[in-house]
Design a protein around this nucleic acid. Structure first.
Lengths: 345, 345
DNA sequence: TGTTAGCACTCGACCGAATAGAGTGCTAAC
DNA sequence: GTTAGCACTCTATTCGGTCGAGTGCTAACA
């Protein structure tokens, strides 16, 4: 069933107004707010209809109306018109490119939080298909060697491996060549048991060491699985009375601190591919504690196969236009950052 | 001026009681609470004295008394008696030793938070005198090399260095030897301009590369200066009504999120050396937003010259005995962890 | 001289009634 | 189909009153 144009306009006006004020909005307000030139009585009739259709609700009998989840949903899906204004500022803020990944991510989270006045999160990019590019074993001490592993996306991992036997330079060189010639270019899943046995055999005496190295490699890469999530602006929730009461605030803060909980958001989003911006409204959210919030997420792609998620969490009366716009900008920004990286090097 | 024994006992009783309940405590309560067998009237007289001396205050005329900062201070300095009970649990929780530093630290913060019901923070150890142990340059691509730097405490740092010239294996080897023989065992401050010039000269054609590497080394080590701080249990502040009102909660949450602010705590503490446990009460805290809190900090030593700070932040009516005890345990635990590390390897 | 019982007093917390005001739904007129 | 008007509902706020915890002071007591 479709709403006629007038109902649409009224619903839109209600939502817009509520986004700003956070207060239930009454018929009189709308009567003046829109350019429809209708009296409050007429609006009241329409509002009764809209309520019956489930787009708005009344907190109590003699209060104005506020949008329901369904109302927000319609708004987000068909009535929003993004504006491209503050996009430029954002770009500038990001231009001071941070060289270290984690700094960059923290920076992004912060810029987003400051810019939108909502809580934000961003995950480090995950390596979907993670090919080995380079392995280097070095003897650091008599009894430990350092394994450095570089993957396709220029992500560097280290691991200290204790060894019982002392290895001479020549052996080290051999091992390095052995590992590099055999493993480079492989994704981690491709390193199977057969290959390992082969390597061990080739390494002769030092077969057990090879095992340890491979374990270290596997572990090192897997380590990313419990992924890093950076958050910022959690205190922003106090700016919205509907979230700021003790129970809710406490729950939300906890959710933000226990970052694992946020990973639901990520998983949910990952399946979708790089796709579009996604909006969860109220109960739609995959995280129970956020049922009074809206969440907007986007995936960004940082080089091939490395994908991360950005999320903005705020009250349901979130400024969807601004948030979606901002998120799109950041996404593009991050997507292109990697390209620039390549050029510079 | 010294308090007589009875006043001491009464003050102690007031504080103990207030720590538990968070409510102002009246004369009648104390009359029953202590084994002094005094009537409430007598207590009242003594309390009037204690108030005049500044150890307790009255929120309003007809309320009981609560300890002032000065009162807490006296309590912490001379009346506390730690108890050694729950120490064992804690040890067990930490025994599952995490191999990765950041995991370990997060874990510690969490264990502390869960155990005490206060907010906690812990900094990664800082390298006071940070000697180079090993440098390794590897060619990863045609146009970039990877520098791996290992310092005395087995802390590993990476840095990608873009290069214009393509270097052959032999040159790489030479450079590695050059760097290692000259720089190993030096603290970063010891690498001065003269030395750099010397190295550059010795490197001949590749002098500029040396410069870049040294820069990378410097940068890499300096990077730690903006130190990592891990926090946990921030939501615990909601358990204490006196901190949980919106204004305060928001401020505190912000402080915890903007971890730089917490670094004041660290700096303040570092000067002191490894010393004792330190307690800030109310206004004593170096962070304005925490003037309604108490903060207990300790330094731990993770191997020689690597020092970090642990802090527990809670309401002024914090269970000082427990906190100090717990903190001591953790501190010892961390101190010894490094020793164990050495043995195992 | 130190301790205690007793009492008047203070002040916040709590409760209920009264009031104001925002907003509705309905009806009747345009 | 639109609107003016009105009775009605419900919340938020305010105000006075009461309750009770706790105090300070005084006078009596050991």
């Amino acid at each position: 069933m479709h709403l006629d144009e007038r109902k649409m306009k009224i619903l839109q006006a209600i939502i817009r107004n509520y986004l700003e004020t956070g207060e239930p909005v009454g018929s009189r307000t709308i009567s003046k707010y829109t350019d429809l030139n209708l009296s409050s009585a007429t609006i009241r009739n329409e509002m009764a209809d809209l309520e019956e259709l489930g787009y708005i609700v009344q907190p109590h009998t003699s209060a104005g109306r506020i949008p329901s989840d369904k109302g927000y949903r319609l708004y987000v899906d068909s009535m929003m018109q993004e504006n491209e204004r503050q996009v430029e500022e954002l770009k500038e803020m990001l231009v001071e490119k941070e060289e270290k990944m984690d700094h960059l991510l923290k920076q992004v989270a912060k810029v987003l939080a400051v810019n939108t006045n909502y809580a934000t999160m961003i995950t480090a990019p995950r390596y979907q298909k993670n090919k080995l590019k380079f392995i280097q074993l070095s003897r650091v001490d008599a009894d430990q060697i350092l394994a450095v592993i570089v993957t396709e996306g220029n992500v560097i991992k280290n691991s200290m491996i204790p060894v019982s036997e002392t290895l001479d330079d020549e052996t080290m060189l051999k091992l390095n060549i052995l590992l590099n010639t055999n493993l480079n270019g492989l994704a981690i899943e491709e390193i199977n048991l057969g290959m390992i046995t082969l390597l061990k055999a080739q390494a002769g005496l030092h077969g057990s060491l090879i095992g340890e190295v491979i374990d270290a490699v596997a572990e090192t890469i897997k380590e990313d699985e419990d992924l890093e999530i950076y958050t910022s602006g959690t205190n922003n929730i106090f700016k919205y009375p509907e979230l700021a009461d003790q129970k809710r605030a406490s729950e939300l803060i906890t959710t933000f601190e226990e970052k694992q909980l946020l990973s639901k958001l990520v998983d949910d989003n990952m399946e979708e591919g790089t796709g579009e911006i996604k909006v969860y409204i109220g109960e739609e959210a995959p995280i129970q504690t956020m049922k009074d919030c809206s969440i907007v997420t986007a995936n960004y792609e940082f080089g091939e196969g490395m994908r991360g998620t950005i999320g903005i969490i705020g009250p349901k009366r979130m400024d969807y236009e601004k948030v979606v716009g901002t998120l799109k900008t950041i996404k593009v920004q991050l997507d292109t950052l990697y390209q620039k990286d390549l050029k510079e090097e």
